[in-house]
Amino acid sequence: MLDIALIWEMRDLILQGLWNTLWICLLGCLLALSLGLVLAALRLANPRLFSYPVACYVEICRGIPLLILLFLLYYGGPSIGLTLSASVAGVVGIGLYGAGYFAEIYRGGFKSIPKGQLEAARMLGISPWHALVRIQIPQMARLIVPPSTNQLIILVKESALISIISVDDLTKNATTIVNQTFQVIEPYLAVALLYWLMIELVARGGYALEKRLANRQPRHIAQKDNAHANG
């Protein structure tokens, strides 16, 4: 029989963990989204100069587990003069790790825009910056919403790893409750439910954004997308 009263008794610890998970995920994801865009834009703006370094960064992010990156930042940082609190290391770790994935998602989005559209812009005297902001990003945004939503979901779930570098997030506080009460099922079920709610929120936000952007598209493309989304 589940001891629901236990969760109620430990609610402060759970809510504190939820709050920490929320703000660390939010800042980490924002960092990942922005840094990813900068990396992709640099690669696009000057492939000769930035293609190789950005590709290396992406490969490193994809090749290293998030946990190792967190260890390097939190435990390894002080040896090179970089002392971060556990929470900040969590934000930076999630941000740097996610940026590699987002850079690739953005690159795919940029690549899908026909070169001729940019040539037309250049012939009208539209600057590369305006072409990026007004022509490329709006079109790319619609294409990258589904893979970006997936990536955000993965980052939120993987954020549980920050508990290992002693951040008092949902996972760590659930483990604390387990250690104090010797009850395993209730605390972990409660945090599982909270993670599920957060991810559902991200997924629904992604769908809403996708729908909103599709409304600015030619009707038949929007219909095709909706048909695809409906399975």
Binding site: P114, M123, Q139, R142, P218
Partner: peptide, 20 residues
């Protein structure tokens, strides 16, 4: 390049309109 090319307008085979 933009300054020198300003008097020129161009139309392409595949239109290259911005679909959004």
């Amino acid at each position: 390049v933009d300054e020198v090319r300003a008097p020129v307008g161009m139309v392409f085979q595949h239109f290259h309109l911005w679909p959004h």
